[in-house]
Design a protein around this nucleic acid. Structure first.
Length: 939
RNA sequence: GGGUGGGUAGCUCAGCGGUAGAGCGGCGCCUUUACACGGCGCUGGUCGCAGGUUCGAUCCCUGUCCCACCCACCA
């Protein structure tokens, strides 16, 4: 150990790969299934990434957060299980594979369903494998043997079981509805895949329908009814014109009809208070049940005919009459022109609206009517609301509860069928009489009439249907497996807030329904990772950052190529060029993890900044070098870390143990309270500001060759203990670096021993530090230390002001104090102060007027003690400094004096607040006097 | 239109009733054998705006203006 010299800088890439293989090949990630293992379980089911594409920063963020929780619990005596897996992601994946086919000059239709599905599976193997590899790169300590995929046979059984049960319970039904149709890819879209593009300026086009009675004869007193639309071509599918029942202007229209100008049809004029707003437009509304959600609902209320005028490719079908065959936008123009031509055009105005566009193809989504499967949501939603109300499930940050309740209380039935090929087949079969048979096993004859053969429903299930079962389907449900018994319900579910409805709420509903128990105790919602400007990452914007590029580094050229390949627009490429002129340097996984952890979980936006990652890369190196220093200094000593705090006598040693204990406390309370930002922050500051900046500096004279052997020995012991404990505390956040160092730290054999003696020792399975065991809080020591710190900090200030090098020895440090305790502390730590401050000597000068009046003596005051460094200063600079100090004090003092002069404050504020203010004021007053005196002394 | 979150140092963000914090940046000094991916020091803020509650408000309340996101709707 002793003669091993660490390189000057930490090289993460090689170490990370090595340790990950070590952990995985030794089975250290696996949860224990031993019957005698009675440790409490801690389980997280991963939010399964889509098998499309590669992981992005959002995944990196989630993976890190979850891995910290899992590793922490593993180290605090839990049987920890993290279930990894992937989602088949229905449409997203199908679209990607279709794009590949297009590049090959073929289509899924040419290929046929079976061959196409084979192709998707091949894609899944490739893409899914890459994603799982990325998770490993991030350090995810998943139990890989349990890797699940939403299309696995086991999970298919769960899907079928739940579908059939819900059907039998009357919670799944078939109904005719409007779906979002993408005419380019010719598939339905889920709500998720529809982007609402706001602020599109369109045209509100008005035209007239001639009014007739039921026999087609003109109506006396009213010749026409004027309606408005942004989509004139849909008038071909109009099956009613609606007016408000209370609208006095149109009583003559009640019971009458509109004559369709293009197709041979009389359109009834109906009364509907729900659809019609009397104040809007003409107060007359054309109703196209087959192509508009509101009209569809209106059609249901009035039992209107639903006429679909479109083919699946977006051209007009035969219902379009003279316009049949035209593409929908061409048809729009043609209908408008024709209406003008025959004199029914009644005006047009600009109209700002929101257009639903397909996230996949960018085309305007077309509402189309079709028969779909639905889940009746209300009976499922009620218990899910209760579960959060009564605290069975806790949502963090809590603000999200409101959103959750709002959605569940206004829930719509869930359309679960999709006209795709990639997904779980719907276990429903039809006979020649269109009777439906829903069954767990493939049926041979119709359940209703016994007819055969049967044909299976061609549709597949929404990808979220299988995701909703995730927390228990991955544990073997519907079988009553030992896994299910041991690990359900899981503890925490961590994910982005964007899928609170699509996934989280549905898991709660399904978990309660099928397991009778919530699927997880806590929902942790993370913010969205955005670029440095705070804009959402998207391929088109070119601002998607691949975690691997940050970890391993990437040149600007590589970044640009990648962005271009992913379809970035020129603006996006410019952003990249401007923001990342130099590309990315190598940062390492641990640095990225620390960065992601440092953002508050409260914020909705995580505007990832490269500078911040660099800061943590530097921190990795800092920690590395602290270890390097320690190992070098431990040299031939026989100090070993034992996992128990030593009992040193030197102030610095006692102090660092006290600070260590506090850091551990904060770290623990931070993780326990899901404030990983606070936990990681506490350790960061402990390592950098206390361990490195102060303790390591102070330990140098104690470890020096000529030092007191007893002190040297206890310092070595303290040093090795503090380093080893710090590594354990940081391990959940920085797994690779900590293991790399820890394995080199001299330590006793029982540290990091696995339950299974055949497995190697690892920090992964070591005990997480406990404040009272690994450290020792000591208020008195901390107070004493402040005196030493003050003396040395003052010396630093002077050195810096005067521009003297650290190597230059000051003649002496003389101090004046009435405070005997402080004097004792300084006296006791004379060696440290002299050594670290590089003074020739330290002495008390209570009666040394010569020093006090020496104009060349640098002066500073700290903690009520005056310090002088004779002959150390540049007079002018010193004068400037003193004047500046006095000004600063006066400003602070002014505010405080005013406050204390205020009787209301003194009378009403709590006594301790007043006392504190008085003490501060007195301290400032004294300081001011000293500074003023020093200034006078300098002339 | 409804809702949610946010506006704090040049930038990115913590803090949320008792004299404003971090990282990055800027300026100055220091090539000191753990680390220049470093050390030390300094600079920098009427805590969006206007009222109110309070002895005291960045923090609580009301209003208001911006920004982001979500939901609904726009015939």
């Amino acid at each position: 150990m002793s003669d091993e010299t660490l390189p000057k800088a930490y090289a993460p890439a090689e170490a990370e790969k090595r340790w990950y293989e070590f952990w995985e090949s030794n089975g250290l990630f696996a949860a224990s299934m031993a019957p005698d293992d009675d440790r409490p379980t801690y389980t997280i089911a991963i939010p399964p990434p889509n098998v499309t594409g590669t992981l992005h920063m959002g995944h990196a963020c989630r993976t890190t957060f979850e891995d910290v929780l899992v590793r922490y619990h593993r180290m605090t005596g839990h049987n920890a299980l993290w279930i990894p897996g992937l989602d088949h992601a229905g449409i997203a994946t199908q679209v990607v594979v279709e794009r590949l086919l297009k590049a090959e000059g073929t289509t899924r239709h040419e290929l046929g369903r079976e061959k196409f599905i084979e192709r998707v599976w091949a894609w899944k193997e490739k893409s899914g494998g890459r994603i799982l590899q990325q998770l490993r790169t991030m350090g995810a300590s998943c139990d890989w043997d349990r890797t699940a995929f939403t299309m696995d046979p086991d999970l298919a059984v769960a899907v079928r079981e739940s579908f059939v049960r819900l059907y039998e319970e009357g919670l799944i039904y078939r109904g005719t509805r409007l779906v979002n149709w993408d005419v380019t890819t010719q598939t339905v879209l889920s709500e998720l895949e529809v982007d609402q593009q706001e602020g599109v300026v369109g045209e509100l086009f008005e035209f007239a329908y001639p009014v007739v009675d039921k026999d087609g004869a003109p109506v006396e007193g009213i010749a026409e009814v004027v309606v408005a639309t942004t989509r004139p071509e849909t008038m071909l599918g109009d099956t009613a014109v609606a007016i408000h029942p209370d609208d006095a202007r149109y009583t003559a229209l009640h019971g009458k009809f509109a004559k369709h100008p293009f197709v041979d049809r009389l359109v009834p004029i109906i009364l509907d208070a729900e659809l019609v707003d009397m104040a809007f437009g003409t107060g007359c509304v054309k109703v196209t049940p087959a192509h508009d959600p509101n009209d569809f609902a209106t059609g249901k209320r009035h039992d209107l005919e639903e006429i679909n005028i479109l083919n699946l490719d977006g051209t007009l079908n035969d219902e379009g009459g003279p316009f049949a065959g035209l593409e929908r936008f061409a048809a729009r123009k043609a209908v408008k022109a024709k209406l003008e031509e025959i004199g029914l055009f009644r005006g047009s105005k600009k109209h700002t609206m929101t257009l639903p566009k397909s996230q996949r193809s960018g085309t305007v989504v077309e509402p189309m009517i079709s028969t779909q499967w639905f889940v009746k949501m209300e009976p499922l939603a009620t218990p899910a609301i209760e579960a959060v109300e009564n605290g069975s499930v806790q949502i963090l940050p809590q603000d999200w509860e409101k959103t959750y309740f709002h959605w569940l209380r206004n829930i719509h039935d869930w359309c679960i069928s999709r006209q795709l090929w990639w997904g779980h087949e719907i276990p429903a079969w039809y006979c020649e009489h269109e009777h439906v048979t829903v069954s767990r096993e493939t049926p041979t004859k119709c359940a209703e009439c016994g007819a055969a053969p049967l044909r299976q429903d061609q549709d597949v299930l929404d990808t979220w249907f299988s995701s909703a079962l995730w927390p228990f389907s991955t544990l073997g449900w519907p079988n009553e497996t030992p896994d299910l018994k041991r690990f359900y319900p899981t503890q925490d579910l961590e994910t982005g807030y964007d899928i609170l409805f699509f996934w989280v709420a549905r898991m709660i509903m399904m978990g309660l329904h099928f397991m009778g128990e919530v699927p997880f105790k806590r929902v942790l919602l993370a913010g969205l990772v955005t670029d440095e400007r705070g804009e959402k990452m998207s391929k088109v914007k070119g601002n998607v950052i691949d975690p691997l590029d940050v970890i391993y580094g990437a040149t600007l050229e590589t970044l640009l190529e990648k962005a271009q390949f992913n379809g970035a627009k020129p603006g996006g490429l410019n952003y990249l060029k401007k923001t990342y002129k130099e590309g990315f340097s190598e940062h390492g996984t641990d640095a990225l993890r620390m960065t992601l952890l440092s953002y508050s979980p409260q914020s909705r936006r995580i505007a990832l900044s490269l500078k911040r990652i660099e800061g943590y890369r530097n921190f990795s190196n800092k920690l590395w070098n602290a270890a390097r220093f320690s190992l070098m200094n431990l040299g031939d000593s026989d100090a070993v870390a034992t996992g128990v705090a030593p009992e040193p006598t030197a102030l610095a040693n006692k102090w660092i143990l006290s600070r260590l204990a506090r850091a551990i406390e904060t770290s623990r309370s931070g993780v326990d309270g899901y404030r990983l930002d606070e936990a990681s922050g506490a350790l960061y500051h402990f390592v950098w500001d206390e361990l490195c900046d102060w303790y390591l500096e102070l330990s140098k004279p104690l470890l020096a060759d000529g030092a007191d052997p007893a002190i040297k020995a206890e310092t070595e012991q303290t040093l090795v203990h503090v380093i080893e404990t710090t590594l354990r505390a940081l391990h959940p956040m920085m797994p690779f670096l900590t293991e790399e160092i820890w394995q080199k730290v001299p330590r006793s054999d029982d540290l990091g021993k696995h339950r299974d003696p055949s497995k190697p020792r690892s920090i992964m399975v070591a005990r997480y530090p406990v404040a009272d065991i690994d450290g020792r809080v000591d208020e008195a020591v901390e107070a004493e230390f402040e005196v030493v710190r003050a003396a040395l900090a003052g010396a630093n200030t002077i050195r810096s002001q005067q521009g003297t090098s650290r190597a230059e020895t000051f003649s002496a440090l003389v101090y004046f104090t009435k405070d005997e305790r402080a004097a004792t502390v300084l006296e006791a730590n004379r060696e440290v102060v002299v050594g670290v401050g590089n003074f020739a000597e330290l002495r008390r000068g209570a009666d040394d007027d010569a020093v006090r009046s020496d104009p060349t003596a640098a002066f500073f005051t700290s903690g009520g003690i005056e310090f002088f460094v004779p002959g150390a200063i540049d007079l002018e600079k010193e004068k400037e400094r003193l004047a500046r100090e006095i000004k600063k004090i006066e400003k602070e003092l002014g505010a405080l004096t005013n406050k204390l002069a205020n009787a209301k404050f003194v009378d009403n504020a709590p006594p301790e607040v007043v006392d504190k203010a008085r003490a501060t004021a007195a301290g400032l007053e004294e300081k001011k006097t000293q500074f003023a005196a020093a200034l006078t002394r300098l002339g």
